[in-house]
Structures are given as C-alpha cells and as structure tokens.
Amino acid sequence: MLFAPASCPRLIVKIGSALLVDEGGAVRRDWLAGIAADIAARCRAGQQVAVVSSGAIALGARRLGLAKGGRASLEDAQAAAATGQIALSQVWAEVLGAEGLTAAQILVTLDDLEHRRRYLNAAATLDRLLTLGVVPIINENDSVATEEIRFGDNDRLAARVAQAAGAAGVVLLSDIDGLYDRNPAQPGATHIARVDRIDAAIEAMADTGSASGMGSGGMVSKIAAARIANSAGASLAIASGRIERPLSADARHTLFAAERGASARKAWLAGGLTAKGRLTIDAGAVRALAGGASLLAAGVTGASGDFARGDILDIAGPDGRTIARGLSEYTAADAQMILGLGRDAQEAALGYAPRAAIVHRDHLVLL
C-alpha cells in the first residue's frame, strides 16, 4: 500500500481525466467506486485523505457536444468546466456517500495559492475539513482561470495542496506506472523505482506527452510536482490508475522521496509557480547563498520585471539557471539603482539608508 496510514497521517490523491472519464466522456463509475472504497478503508484506519480530481472539462464537453474534448478554445474550456464541475461533484458525493463519507468541494485558482494570505485561508479550510473527517474534492476553477493565471495541470496543484494541508504523501494516479529512463514506448526503457534527488539527469528522462490526449500534464509536470512536494517534506508517488483499487494494490510505481522539510513559509516560497521579477547574481553571491547568507546588492548583476517590495523574485546564477527564490526588499526601480554597489554607494544612489540586503536570508530559499 502506498503511504500507509500509520506513516502518513494526511494523504493527497490526484486523479487524472483519462482515469475518471472514458473516451466517450462518461464517468468510469465502477472504477471510481473502487477508489471511494479505498479512501474509506484509509479513513477507517485513521488517515485523512483529500482528492485533487480532474475531469470537469471532459465531462462538460460531452454534455455540451464540444469539439476536441472542450479544449478547442479557452472559452470552450471555461464553459465545459462550469458545466462539468457540477456533475463531477455529484458523482464524488454519491460514491463517497455510499461508503459513509462526506465530500466537500473546493475550487481554487493559481492566485489562491500564490498569494500568502489567501494561501493561509485555503490551508485553514483544508485543515478544518480534514479534521472533521470530510474528504475535500479539489480542482482548479477552470471556469474563471485564464492562460495567464492557471496551474495548467493538476499534478502541480496536488503538490501545492499537499503543502497547504501539511500532508506527508502525494499519489499521482496516472495512465503510466511511474518514471522511465526514456519514453516508455521506446525499446529498452527502464522503470525507475525510486528517486532520492531530482537533478538534471532525472529531468532529462521526462516526456511532455500525455498518452490519453484528455489531460494536460505529462511527465514534466509530474516531476515539477515532485519537486514542490519534496521541498515541503512530502514524498510523492506516480502510480498507474489503470488497475482496479489502485490505492490498495501493491503495484509498481516511482517514489520521489521527501527531503527534510523547509519551514512553512520557505516551502510556500519554493513551491510558488509565479514570480514578479528575476535577479541574476555572480559566482561569489552563489557561494554566499549556499552558505546561508543573505543576497547583497553587490553580488547582483542584473534585474528584470516590475516588482514591488515583498514580491517574489527568482534568483539565477551566472549560467541562467534559477537557484533560489525570495522576497524582494526593494522596488524594481530602486533595485536597478543599486545593482553591484557596496553599502556606501547604495545610500548615495538611493538618497536614503539602504536595507541590509536585497533579499534577506529569512525570506530566501534555495531550489
């Protein structure tokens, strides 16, 4: 059993569209009833479970008769999501209710988990529902999300929900049983059972394709989700949902083992999907950050974006790779004036006493 209740008090389960909805756009109800039975067994054993469920667009597209599964345009996707979400929620309420469980619906947008105050509100709601023994059914609010402000896939949403809920484990049920060293359709592809560190070699194994054509996330999104979950101290497993009762089966999967968890605030920073600006730093500053120091303006070689004090910034090394993320102590205009300057020169450029750092170590996390 993946993430047994005794070792994982809270679990997030993500279910993709291709598992929940058949090719004709109808709910795979018998399979879903098996998932509900698995969830009920875990709840009886003391585990609290939340579900990130795809499927609203696929269900709505069938009901509305929309082409391309409702994904021909943003407007079609939004209409399909609005229509399908009510049907999806009803099905979940029925299958969980048959097991004696109460379902709750939570719809979120990217902004709900990227803005700190709204993130904390969502976390409080999740915590209360789970404590009450309710099974939250969570989805992106696709009826209002746009291309610019959306998660784009429910893999990363599941990882962010795990952060907010303080979960120790995430299961991504998919149409594939884990990570392979190359596209599994290629001869000689080897299954990877465990990943202890996500590095460039692991990322190179990812394939962006979605086998079903119904969902929006491929292996790239799943590895990104694993990175988010691991940074918050949660392990993540990719497992096949192409079997009956996948949450109770002892089937092949890939486990991305959790690192030591960061503080809640730093985990939120590391897991963020958007940044208002970007700083490029020199090699000396890279070494200083690795040693736990704050980012001083003297080590910053470039800045881009229109950001205010307190906004999230990506921090890149000389090679352009993003190595950290933090909250800016300056506006974009003031940051531009002090790039590469020592403290005395900063005061002369700004006309006021500079702050201790451009990004303080208390508000900075290495990626």
Rank of each mutant, 00 (worst) to 15 (best):
R156D: 08
A41G: 14
G133W: 12
I39S: 00
G351Q: 13
I86N: 10
A348H: 06
P354C: 11
V134G: 01
A6M: 06
H191G: 01
R355T: 11
L59M: 03
V95T: 03
V27A: 03
V134T: 15
P318T: 10
G342L: 03
T131G: 14
A167W: 02
A204F: 02
G69Q: 05
A98E: 07
E329K: 10
D181P: 07
V170R: 01
A335W: 04
A251Q: 05
Y352S: 12
D306M: 12
L366S: 08
F256N: 03
A324G: 01
D306Q: 15
E347S: 15
L20D: 13
I149T: 07
R71D: 00
D250Q: 10
G16E: 00
R245L: 09
D334N: 15
Q85M: 10
A104H: 04
R63P: 08
A206H: 05
G97L: 03
G16S: 11
D311Y: 02
L64P: 08
W92Y: 12
A290C: 12
T83H: 12
L101S: 06
I312D: 12
A332S: 15
R44C: 01
A293S: 15
D112G: 11
Q346V: 15
A225V: 14
N121S: 07
I35Y: 02
D334S: 14
P354K: 13
I12Q: 04
G292S: 14
A162L: 11
A158P: 09
A168M: 08
T322R: 06
P354L: 10
V359L: 01
G60W: 09
G326T: 08
H360F: 02
S221V: 02
D30K: 15
M205I: 11
L247F: 03
E140N: 03
Y119G: 03
G302V: 09
A234G: 08
R128S: 14
A225P: 08
I312F: 05
L367T: 06
R321A: 14
I39V: 15
R309L: 08
A345L: 15
L339R: 09
P5K: 00
G326P: 06
A165V: 12
G320A: 01
S328Q: 05
G188T: 13
K276T: 12
